[in-house]
Amino acid sequence: MFGIVRPCRHGMCGGLFKEWMAHLCGLCLALRDEHGHASRLVTNYDGLLVSVLTEAQAAESSPHRRAAACALRGFKGADVVEAEGVRLAAAVSLILAAGKIRDHVADGDGVYARRPVAAVAERVAARWSTAGSGTAVAVGFDPEILVRAVEEQTRLEGVPGLRLLELTGPTEAAVAAAFGHTALLADKPHNRESLEEAGRHFGRLAHLLDAVEDLAGDRAAGAYNPLVASGTDLAAARRHCDDALLGLRLAVAELDLERRTLVRALLIKEIGRSVTRAFDMAEAAGGTRTGAESSKKRGREHPKAPHRDPRLKPDPGGLLSVMCAAMACCTCGLYRPPWDEDRYKSCGERCDASGCDACGQCGDCGNCCDCDCCSCDCCDCSCDC
């Protein structure tokens, strides 16, 4: 729901997490102020990277303001980013969310197979696409780049026999364009080439990890998945992800940044964790092959599924499921429905499950947040690095 970058307050220094939250709250408020409360449903973590990159290149390009109290912050005020980078993040989030909704409608996924739901979803997608395009134009970004990428992605999914990296191409192009535009917003045009390269690698990772996470479910439902469509197994997909991680790391190293720490924490550390988490979960679910061949044909059984908490209720589907998903999105994951596997886990348990160096296990701050300003026994330190 929120993307592949999923930072946790236990996984980074207190100062870094505060910076991250300033961008997250800034995006949420920008969506509300320009497009209404309903548009806050498209708030996602990956889109925030364009705001982070804009501020990292030139701090003066991202002014902050004091926001009023919010229930999601314990009815406290907060320092939030109010800049063109946040507006670009809002535009990208709206346009891509609209494209995803249309894709679900076209495929007839879940509740979208019902005509009344599909009709409402189409209207919402059209409204979000128009709103996002308007905001994109206002910050000097051509929205047609994203619209065409979404359309091309849909077209490629109907073409048989394509290789995996051909299928990820439209996503790579869309993210590259958004990342590259932050160089213009920050008045650092010499960064544009490296930012576009970073965007291509990040777009590839986002597409592949989404496919890996959905692999078991897509197989069971007979839905489209790029790994199955291209005949790619998890080992090959992991190699592509590792190559993209290396390319991303090299591209970030070439950037002229005034503030590098948060960018490194998100684009290198957190994405590396996401890769590990996605493939560990896929292998635990028995997704070690693509195509029709089963594990029995290879002489072994699927690994057992992780233990299910007996307190979890079954997902009822239908309107209630959609409403609960919307509630989880509106609260940035603070609310979790009774059938969510993370509902009864503490933050520390969720971090441990995702491979996070959390809850006092990281050793020292330099290993977990790439700073050298302190030496502590927990990532949640008070240094403002």
Rank of each mutant, 00 (worst) to 15 (best):
R9L: 11
C374G: 11
L184P: 04
L27T: 03
S294Y: 00
P7F: 06
D243T: 14
E152K: 15
T168R: 01
G3L: 02
A292R: 14
C359A: 14
A206K: 06
K304I: 03
P160S: 14
K100I: 08
G99Q: 09
L53W: 08
N225Q: 05
I95N: 05
R264H: 09
D315F: 03
G363W: 01
C385N: 09
R336G: 08
I271P: 02
K188E: 11
V80R: 08
A236I: 04
R350W: 01
D214F: 00
D46H: 05
E60L: 11
R9S: 14
A58N: 15
C324N: 15
A223H: 15
N191L: 01
A83N: 08
M323W: 10
M323F: 13
T182S: 08
G363H: 04
P306S: 03
V228L: 12
L250V: 13
G47Q: 01
T168S: 12
G36K: 05
L312R: 09
G272H: 01
L88A: 08
R343M: 06
G217M: 02
C332T: 11
V252T: 08
G161L: 04
L209E: 04
R6M: 10
L146A: 13
L162H: 09
S39K: 04
W20M: 03
H240F: 08
F141L: 05
A292M: 10
L185V: 12
A251H: 09
A30W: 00
S295Q: 11
A58E: 09
A149Y: 02
P160G: 13
H240D: 08
D79N: 13
A229C: 01
